[in-house]
Structures are given as C-alpha cells and as structure tokens.
Design a protein around this nucleic acid. Structure first.
Lengths: 243, 243
DNA sequence: AGCCTGAATTGAACGCGTTCAATTCAGGCG
DNA sequence: CGCCTGAATTGAACGCGTTCAATTCAGGCT
C-alpha cells in the first residue's frame, strides 16, 4: 500500500500537515461556537479541544475574529453553490432573484444565534471582516457578480444603464435584509423571509415602472448618485492613520 | 454666602455629589476617547485621570460601552436642539428635511474617528446600545417624532397614509446615511454630505411622484410592508434566552 | 552522519475589562 | 453623642485575548 503512495513530494507532505492542523482548529472552533456561542468560547478551550497549544492556534489564525472570517468564507461558498443551482434552473427574473435571496437566508440560518457577533465585528470599519474592507473585496465582488448573473441570465430585458447599476444596488439591498435578519427573533426568522419576499416583489415592480418615460429623470438621478459614490468610500484606499 | 445656600436639603446634597462624580468620569472618558480613541483608552486611565478608582467608575457606568451610550445620548440631545432651530425657522419640506439631516451629520462629526466602535457595539443585537433595543427606545421614538415634525410642520400637504408611514421610513433612511458616514473617509466626510443631499432630493421627488394614480398600488404595498414589520423585530420583547 | 534552516509548536507573561468583598463616608435616629 | 444604614469608594484578583522568546521538528545539503 505505502509503496503506491510514495509519489507525494516532501514539501507537499509538509503543507498537508499544516493544513490539517489548521482545519482541525477551525472545525473545533466552529463546533464550540455553535454549542456555546462565540463570547463563551475561549481560545484556550478551542486550543485544548483541538489538541494544540494556544500559541499554535494563533499561528494559524491571527485572532479570534479571523476564525469568524473563515466561517464567513465558508457560508459564502455555500451560498454561491446554492445560488448556482437556482440560476441554472430558473429563467424568470423574479424566480432567480427570489431564489438567490432565499438561498442566502437558508445558508446563514444555522448560525443565527451567533450572527450578532459576526455582524458586530463586521460593522467595524477597522475590522478585516468589514464587507467594505480590502480583505473582503473578493467576496464582495463575487456576491455582486451573482446579482449581475441574476439579471443578465433572465429572460427579461432591461435598459443598459439599469443593468450596469443594479448589481451594486441589489448587493446593498441584500446586506440590508441580512441586517434585518440579524435582529429578527421571530420563530424560524419568518419575518425576515416575509420582508425579503415582499421587498423583492416591490423592487421588481419598481424596476418595471422605469419603463415609463415619466420616471426617466428620476432614474437618471438615482443612477448618477449610485455610480458617483460606489466603492470610493472604503477606508482601505489609504492605510488607516494609527500613530 | 453660605447662609443663603443652606436651603438645599441633605438628600439633594448627596445626590449632587454623586452626579458630580458621574459627570467627572464621563467628561474625562469622552475627552480621552477623542484624544486617543476608544480602544486605546483604558478604564484604568479614565479612572486615574478622573481622580477615582477603577471600581468607582464601574459604580456609575456598568461597562465601558455604557460610557458610549452616555455620549450617544448627549449627541442625540444636541441634534434635537439643532433640529429644533431649523424647524422653527423653515417651512418648506425640503429645507426642513435637509436641515435636520445636515444637523445630524454636523452633530456627530467631531466623533467620526471613534464612530466605528460606536457602531460596532451598536450593531450587536445583544447590546443595550443597539438602536432597536428596549433601552434605546426613548431615543428612537424622539428621533422618529423629529421626522414626524419635519413632515407635519411643513407647508406641503401629503396623503394621510404617507404621513403615517414616513417617519419610520425616514428614520431608517437616516440610519443608513449614518452607516455610510461611518465608513466614509473622504476629507470632511464630504461624500456623506453629498450622498445625503442627493438622496434627500431623490426622496422628495419620489414622494411627489406618489400623487400620480399610476403609482398608487405600489405605494400601498410599500406601506403595508412597512407597517406590518415595524417594531416587532426587536429581540427585547422577551428576555434573551441565556442558559 | 552532522549541520542548517525555516516551519511548527509551546506556555509563561502582559494588558485589558470586569468583579466583588472590604472599607470609608455621611446623614438620620434614639 | 454613638450607632445604624445605605451610598460611595477602594484595589486586589479573575479570566480573557493576545504576544513572543524559546524550543522542537523535519527535510535538504555536504
């Protein structure tokens, strides 16, 4: 048996080892987070449970928050996968949009209990977890692309300028829904689903309204506002001045 | 001199003392926050600077976060005062709305550097600082009333259902602007002011559009959505289940 | 085999927010 | 006047996240 497996080079074996430890720590951490909550889970407990020293946990994760970031990346992947399924299946704009949004809520549902901490750290402009930070730019871009795909892959034709601006708008909208969801304590987060479904319907209606020439100037101004401000706000362009 | 001042009862003298200590601690804390930032200011430093013991600081403020809450209450008062001035002066809906929003940004400007921490804690559903929490309900109500006054005191007449729903909508909108402001690193937060002015204009335009019967069903649905969901989300209705 | 090097790992130590048993203070009462 | 009581105040101690100098480990080179 081992004679067959020899092919693996040394450096790869080394990397494998490190990645296993890393995965072990992350897995243990997420489990403890789910069991006891974030604040109640200490780094010492994580390390002990994972069979490593405290310092070693910090070797792989710069801070306790970075463990959340890893989790964040994971649910993001899950959402992408779930959305892909919807987008492959559906052609109607409404179904696609609704499906992606529903997938979002479904994906994050298991973590609702400690979503507060997640958002708490995510809201800090200085945190790498901040959705506007440079560190989470890839994730943000992927999410935005998702909404691009929702629109361009649908059988509905929309004016070009709207197509250009909508993805970012919808991304912000979806963040708003998540924000509501975080504070939603209704059973099964039913209210969040309800709000999402209704607001999606409303948005689609609003979009269709833009066909009327009456509303064109309004639309124009909205688009100018959005494109003018998009992206330039992130504090990441210059390193935060800490003396 | 003292013969005149004798009138003060004992209990009042006592209360005065306590309140002075409390004020002393708060003043020192806010000063240090502004100087060095929130995270960099330790409770020990605050206590020492205020000439009290650490424990005593905790006697008056349950936690470091509660010092922020006190600051929050203060800027809220300032905003109310500044808004009052505007509302007494202006009669046009646009001027009133713009004035109140501008006053908001002006009021919080001095604290922009540590606004991140403010929002970070405010975003946590479990935190008393959370704008949706029971503890900040009075502040939230006052803010909402402010927008009621913006509308009802203006010389523009609006449909009754709109008048009923707008205050809450505008409050949420104003929170959104603050959220943008927190992440705004442009000089003088110019971008936030710009966004605010443009979006205010847009909102007013949107409001005036509702006069067209074409948009009535849209408006209806929007109002239903808002009134249905308003307020019931706060997790404060039942004590958070902590085992 | 022996050495070198850089990754992996350790655990004691630091600084922080927070707690709390103990102490002081000051006004009311017999 | 001395006692009582509750508010005000103290500071040592706790548990936490985080750091870092020191140590081990394992592969590559001579």
């Amino acid at each position: 048996m081992d004679a067959i497996a020899v092919a693996a080079p040394e450096s790869q074996k080394k990397r494998r080892k490190g990645e296993e430890t890393r995965a072990q720590i992350l897995e243990t951490a997420l489990e403890l987070f789910r069991e006891r909550g974030y604040e109640e889970t200490t780094m010492r407990a994580i390390a002990e449970s994972a069979g490593v020293s405290v310092g070693n946990a910090y070797y792989y994760f710069k801070s306790k928050e970075h463990l959340i970031q890893a989790f964040y990346a994971r649910t993001h992947e899950e959402h992408l996968a779930a959305s892909r399924e919807v987008l492959d299946r559906e052609r109607g704009l409404r179904e696609r949009f609704l499906g992606v949004m529903r997938a979002k809520l479904d994906t994050i549902e298991p973590y609702h209990q400690f979503s507060g901490v997640l958002f708490k750290t995510a809201a800090d402009p200085a945190s790498p977890l901040n959705p506007f930070s440079a560190e989470s730019l890839p994730v943000r871009q992927q999410s935005t692309e998702l909404f691009t795909e929702v629109i361009t892959g649908a059988d509905t034709r929309l004016p070009a300028e709207l197509v250009a601006a909508l993805p970012n708008l919808l991304w912000v909208y979806h963040m708003g829904i998540v924000l509501y969801w975080i504070h939603d304590s209704s059973p099964g987060c039913a209210k969040s689903y309800r709000l999402m479904e209704r607001s999606v319907r409303l948005i689609l209606r609003l979009i269709s309204l833009f066909q009327f020439p009456l509303l064109r100037p309004f639309l124009r101004e909205l688009l100018v506002l959005v494109t003018e401000l998009r992206g330039d706000v992130t504090p990441a362009q210059a390193a935060p001045a800490v003396e």
